[in-house]
């Protein structure tokens, strides 16, 4: 396995009947990189992400995730990645501690390990007073920070974050990115989608999907240069306004 490339795809394609949801996408993500996966609604991001997480078998093309094949080694992929989205992250009717224990177990950690890491995590998030509260009663910002910590609790090589900061207040949104940066420094590769264009700036590289294709892929600075744009917002607008498809 190539340890330099956490994600590697070649002409990855997914069709539903006549509809080409993802059309020959080719890209690599390096270990430790923060990779922003952007695109308009309906561009094919969710379908692509499902293939990368081992949840959907591609129609054609190749891809390896953490060195594992997306056709044959989907179970291996699931054990080696973390996943968090705005919509699904934690069980609201379990407590903080129960959620951590549950996900630790799901990811196959041993009891002793779960206990030790739980203590560490609860201390790091300063949740000692809240650890026996139901997650449903926590403010959204805390929930999202806890959800991210749980998604990387088993020390995956790669974590997928699907609009992790949607609806979160501006202070918490920044704290969340502090956590992302820390995880990246610890060597975890970050694959993230967002509708906030300022967050696109925090990524090492960005891909822009339009109508199933990856239309642009580079660092934010290079993309702005290439499209002669002041901000990522302008780059996005320039690329996405020609889109034929909507969600």
């Amino acid at each position: 396995m190539n340890s330099q490339k956490m994600i590697s795809t070649r002409d990855l394609t997914k069709t539903f009947g006549d509809f080409v949801a993802v059309n020959n996408i080719t890209f690599d993500v390096r270990q430790g990189e923060i990779f922003g996966f952007l695109g308009a609604n309906g561009a094919g991001k969710t379908t692509a992400m499902r293939m990368l997480c081992g949840l959907s078998i591609p129609t054609s093309g190749e891809a390896t995730i953490a060195g594992y094949d997306v056709y044959k080694e989907t179970e291996k992929i699931k054990q080696n990645i973390g996943y968090m989205s705005q919509k699904f992250s934690l069980y609201e009717d379990l407590t903080v501690a129960e959620n951590i224990r549950f996900f630790g177990g799901i990811y196959g950690l041993k009891n002793g390990e779960i206990k030790a890491r739980s203590r560490e995590l609860i201390n790091a998030l300063d949740l000692n007073d809240q650890k026996d509260l139901l997650v449903g009663s926590l403010p959204l910002g805390w929930k999202q920070k806890l959800a991210f910590s749980v998604a990387i609790f088993h020390h995956p090589k790669l974590v997928f974050l699907d609009e992790p900061t949607g609806g979160v207040d501006p202070v918490t949104r920044r704290q969340f990115w502090d956590m992302i940066n820390q995880a990246s420094e610890d060597g975890i590769t970050i694959f993230v989608t967002t509708h906030y264009m300022d967050e696109a700036e925090y990524c090492d590289r960005i891909s822009m999907m339009v109508d199933g294709y990856i239309r642009a892929l580079d660092s934010p600075a290079q993309l702005k240069k290439q499209y002669n744009a002041e901000s990522m917002d302008e780059v996005f607008y320039e690329l996405a306004r020609g889109a034929k498809r909507t969600e």
Partner: peptide, 10 residues
């Protein structure tokens, strides 16, 4: 406009 991309929001 929640969850809607930047172009549709405009």
């Amino acid at each position: 406009t929640t969850g809607v991309d930047a172009v549709s929001r405009k």
